[in-house]
């Protein structure tokens, strides 16, 4: 099949970017979306043009590195699917496909389709951990965790940190990402000690990074490759309120 591509090209962080048109013949419907981009790059290299830079690594939907906005949707037309797991059979012959980077104030574009998501790292380093040093851990079975809690914690912990939630949020809010980690650690018994500080510090860092407010449109859940529930955001709000309240009582 044949595709008309409109791809965002931007030299570096400071440069002004623009959409550039490309035509790609012989696209195989079994190709993954990223393999289609590989094919385009191969063609660009043959023509001595600069290939398109895009984020990708594991190509099996778990590392969270890939992610572009395809025809106005983060990770493309399929819901709950990473860009690398999207295949060209989802597109029609002769279709025009518009490819842009994830956009948000918290995610500056580095080059072409690559964005800087280090804000997520800083949110985690503000408190998204259990302060246990190597060697301090007690015997694993000394902390029973009910099946339901373990499963719920997993549901939150499954986040791959791709940033589609931010890209798809009209407010550029990182609430889903931040809340997933806060929730995972708020419900597990082994991470209760820092529960209040964790919530307050991570949320403060999230704000500092310039992410917007969550206005509960719930779009993030639909585009999230792991289908992380928006109820994590509710839980984050609860943790924030609880921590803010208990802080004064101290």
């Amino acid at each position: 099949m044949k595709l008309h591509l409109k791809i965002w090209r931007q030299k570096n962080r400071k440069a002004q970017g623009k959409l550039v048109n490309y035509t790609l013949e012989n696209v195989n419907p079994h190709m993954s979306f990223l393999e289609m981009l590989d094919t385009l790059n191969e063609q660009l290299i043959q023509n001595k043009e600069e290939p398109v830079e895009f984020d990708h690594d594991c190509r099996e939907g778990i590392c969270g590195q890939c992610g572009v906005v395809i025809n106005g949707n983060a990770h493309g037309p399929l819901e709950n699917t990473t860009t690398c797991q999207l295949h060209m059979r989802e597109f029609k012959d002769g279709e025009t496909v518009l490819i842009e980077p994830f956009r948000a104030k918290g995610f500056p574009v580095k080059k072409d389709l690559k964005v800087d998501r280090s804000a997520f790292d800083r949110i985690i380093s503000a408190g998204g951990y259990v302060s246990v040093n190597t060697g301090q851990a007690p015997e694993a079975n000394s902390i029973p965790v009910s099946h339901a809690i373990a499963e719920a914690a997993f549901d939150s912990a499954a986040c791959i940190g791709c940033g589609a939630c931010v890209a798809t949020c009209k407010n550029g809010s990182a609430a889903l990402f931040t809340s997933a980690k806060i929730t995972q650690l708020a419900i597990l018994p082994q991470s209760q000690e820092e529960r209040k500080e964790r919530a307050l510090n991570m949320i403060a860092q999230m704000d500092k990074e310039g992410f917007g407010h969550c206005s509960n449109t719930e779009a993030c859940e639909v585009e999230c490759p792991q289908g992380i529930s928006v109820l994590n955001i509710a839980r984050m709000n609860y943790e924030y309120n609880r921590a803010s309240f208990l802080k004064f009582k101290k």
């Binding site: 106005g72 949707n73 819901e79 956009r103 992410f211 407010h213 206005s215 449109t217 779009a219 639909v222």
Partner: peptide
């Protein structure tokens, strides 16, 4: 704040994932 924080796309189909009145 949300206007400055959120991204603007040349083609925007993000609305499919949420209710119009929520947005």
């Amino acid at each position: 704040k949300n206007k400055t924080a959120g991204g603007i796309y040349k083609k925007d189909n993000r609305g499919r994932a949420s209710k119009w009145y929520s947005r």
